[in-house]
């Protein structure tokens, strides 16, 4: 959103950092409500099928879940620190921190890939005979698991794209110590990805 701030409009000399940040926040609100709707679906079905959800959750790998949680939290800290670095005119450190963030994000996806792969291997995917035989409640759990973590992974990819985009601009000195709102916005988006995972993690991996 923020990449089209009022800066370019009609070539007016006016840059509204607060405005583009507000735009980003509003966009984040829509994302929160987007996942919010899914959390409502989740809560209702969990409420209706408590035991099945517990049984199904045992199939999830808590270790991978925890590792991914740590990865996202650390990456959130690194992207936040890169803003401080840029503000202090330390361009090199800022870029390094962004690269670390991207590496962490990528390893999150790699973990996700193996985790999903294992589920498919065990016949725990929508439409699989094994899953179908487990009853409605477990089905609901896995439908929601795939849909919600899948949508979250999609946000991870978008967030990575956003970070790469601003990283290039930092490299070209288009974003500097007195013009860093776009980096802040990329950071805000990345924290949103983290924020959602903070809720996804206990709701899917930690029901015992």
């Amino acid at each position: 959103m923020s990449d089209h701030s009022a800066t370019q409009s009609h070539g007016l000399v006016h840059r509204d950092d607060e405005g583009s940040k507000l735009g980003m926040w509003l966009f984040i609100f829509t994302e929160i409500l987007l996942f919010g709707a899914l959390f409502i679906v989740y809560s209702v079905y969990r409420f209706k099928n408590q035991d099945a959800f517990h049984a199904a959750a045992l199939n999830l790998d808590t270790v991978i879940g925890t590792v991914n949680t740590v990865i996202l939290i650390v990456s959130s800290a690194t992207i936040a620190m890169s803003i401080s670095a840029l503000q202090q005119k330390n361009k090199k450190l800022a870029i390094t921190l962004m690269v670390i963030t991207l590496v962490l994000a990528f390893s999150f996806l790699v973990n996700k890939y193996f985790e999903w792969g294992a589920k498919f291997h065990h016949g725990l995917y929508p439409g699989a005979e094994h899953l179908m035989s487990l009853g409605h409640g477990q089905n609901q759990f896995f439908f929601l698991y795939f849909f919600m973590t899948g949508l979250h992974a999609f946000h991870v990819i978008v967030g990575m794209g956003f970070i790469i985009f601003v990283m290039r601009q930092v490299m070209r000195d288009e974003l500097t110590y007195n013009n860093y709102t776009r980096l802040e916005n990329a950071g805000l988006y990345w924290h949103l990805v983290d924020l959602i995972w903070i809720y996804l993690f206990p709701l899917f991996y930690l029901i015992h």
Partner: peptide, 18 residues
Amino acid sequence: ALFVATIKGTLVLLYFMH
């Protein structure tokens, strides 16, 4: 779980998200 998640979320919102 939700209580702890909410504390974590609040920290992220207040500090990481400024």
